[in-house]
């Protein structure tokens, strides 16, 4: 019973981080068709910001000040990355240069962390105490990660349906040519979407810093699980991402408890293949519904 509760609570908490990575995928993918492989390492970068900005024994006030700072730092980095990624898409025959450029940036971030901080995982202490939940003591960061996921889901929903910029960004994903014909500034919005995805992963990395692995080689695992969460929910759909993340998180946590942490990713891979084979459009996918 205890084990089950731990699996569920931590699975949902870790899953919320996957949801956030998935949503950050969606924002960029919807506006440009690009899947940013670096998103996992950028989450780690958010965690690294927490490690660098927070003192060893942080007070909540430190936390509150550093949170927006981390989000903005990562967003600025992502805007730059977006600009670079979109550069070769103007002239190249093949439109797949982003596969390389985003992966290259991901590799470089990992390498910089390795050179700078060494190969070992960094620990961040949370200013908030653990809280009791169904009889277990759960780190507050799990709860904060869930809150962060819900917060960004609501904000994105509002942004895409209420603001002129958000509407234009949705229009971009629905019909690129018609959007250009309507005078929507495509390139600017695409870079903005990179920046927004940076706000999302930057804040989530910071919030979840005490419970995620902050190291040079952990980014790829978050990219994969985030992508799997996005696929489970239906790529491009934020509600799907919000629900898909915890599903993947609980499954991974279950695997870790039952078979050991080494098999966590293998379990996620099996889940990905199962979803792609049985329902490639995901739970809430638009792929099938989209006009062709």
């Amino acid at each position: 019973m205890d084990e089950l509760v731990i699996i569920l609570v931590r699975g949902v908490g870790v899953g919320a981080v996957f949801s956030l990575v998935a949503m950050s995928f969606n924002v960029v993918c919807n506006s440009s068709g690009i899947l940013n492989f670096a998103q996992g390492n950028l989450l780690v970068m958010g965690g690294l910001c927490a490690y660098l900005l927070l003192p060893g024994d942080p007070e909540p006030i430190h936390w509150l000040v550093s949170l927006p700072l981390s989000a903005l730092l990562v967003a600025a980095f992502l805007a730059l990355q977006g600009w670079i990624t979109l550069l070769p898409l103007r002239s190249s025959v093949e439109q797949h240069s982003w596969l390389i450029t985003t992966m290259a940036v991901s590799v470089m971030i990992g390498a910089v962390i390795l050179v700078w901080q060494g190969p070992f995982a960094l620990n961040v202490r949370s200013p908030f105490p653990n809280f009791p939940l169904f009889g277990t003591r759960t780190p507050m960061s799990y709860l904060l990660a869930v809150a962060c996921a819900v917060f960004w889901y609501v904000v994105l929903r509002w942004f895409h349906s209420r603001t002129q910029t958000g509407l234009a960004m949705s229009a971009l994903s629905q019909d690129l040519d018609a959007a250009r014909a309507a005078g929507i500034q495509v390139r600017r919005l695409q870079i903005l979407s990179f920046a927004i995805s940076g706000l999302i992963v930057g804040s989530s990395g910071f919030v979840a810093a005490p419970v995620i692995k902050i190291s040079a080689d952990s980014g790829i695992s978050y990219v994969l699980n985030g992508f799997i969460a996005a696929v489970v929910g239906g790529l491009g759909n934020n509600l799907g991402a919000l629900i898909g993340g915890p599903l993947v998180g609980v499954a991974a946590m279950f695997a870790a408890f039952r078979f050991g942490g080494q098999l966590q990713n293998a379990f996620s891979l099996a889940l990905l293949i199962a979803v792609l084979m049985l329902r490639p459009q995901g739970l809430f996918g638009r792929m099938a519904a989209r006009r062709v």
């Binding site: 240069s97 450029t101 590799v107 390498a111």
Partner: peptide, 17 residues
């Protein structure tokens, strides 16, 4: 690792094909 990420990135920017 850093070098090889950077080389890949630069090549893509300078030689898109």
């Amino acid at each position: 690792l850093l070098g090889y990420g950077a080389v890949a990135l630069l090549i893509m920017l300078l030689f898109p094909d």
